[in-house]
Design a protein around this nucleic acid. Structure first.
Lengths: 108, 108
DNA sequence: ATAATATGTAACTTTTAGGTTACGCAAATA
DNA sequence: TATTTGCGTAACCTAAAAGTTACATATTAT
């Protein structure tokens, strides 16, 4: 089952979290290693990680006292799924409606 | 030029705004018509529309005293662009790293 | 001309998200 | 065994986001 507790879009709305994901796309990193890339404190990063995990954007591997954060596809899939709903839209319905409205605006 | 003033992900993070976009994918609607689909007040919808417009998710056609909101692709493109950055990732790098870490975790 | 309608905006309130510091705990190290 | 390291969490603060009501304005209808 893949029902995550957080709204993927709300989770990825935060620029810091997007930055974290970018870093993780190049390397799996521990919390501390991630924190070195930010000005914010380590506990702040820790919170973001918890959120990213709950939303399915990362998985976590505990190795001793270290936590390796690993990019995970599920969160991204949630984003993509919603965006895909709009795909069929662009080329058919829209252009006709715009035409109609433009004509109406010009009093034709 | 397509440099919008708002972060597309932050804009689409709000569930009400996503709902607005869904409604607009079926029909171009005025502010008032949109507001009928929500419990919130019309001015609240009006604010969301302003934001969606600034971020390139909709365009607006003024017809007399009415404002028709029309779905627009630019905002969605911004979302897609970011997501696409991660596409090359999944099948190559990730799986190897996970293997390495799992072995390390098991002390192999 | 007057009334009704569709909307934008200002001022305000409330909630929440993101940050901090301080602390505790388990694992690694000396 | 004592110390350091890596991390989670609680308590707290602050700023911003999302909502409200009240009002102003322009267009349409009577």
């Amino acid at each position: 089952m893949t029902s995550y507790k957080l709204d993927a879009f709300q989770v990825v709305a935060d620029p810091s979290r997007r930055h974290i994901l970018q870093l993780l796309s190049k390397d799996s990193l521990t919390i501390g290693a991630l924190a070195e890339n930010f000005e914010m404190s380590r506990p702040a990063v820790s919170k973001h990680i918890k959120i990213l995990n709950k939303a399915g954007f990362i998985s976590i591997q505990d190795i001793g006292r270290e936590r390796y954060c690993i990019l995970k596809q599920d969160g991204f899939d949630q984003l993509q799924e919603w965006i895909d709903h709009f795909d069929g839209f662009w080329l058919s319905k829209l252009q006709k409606l715009e035409m109609v409205l433009e004509n109406k605006a010009n009093g034709k």
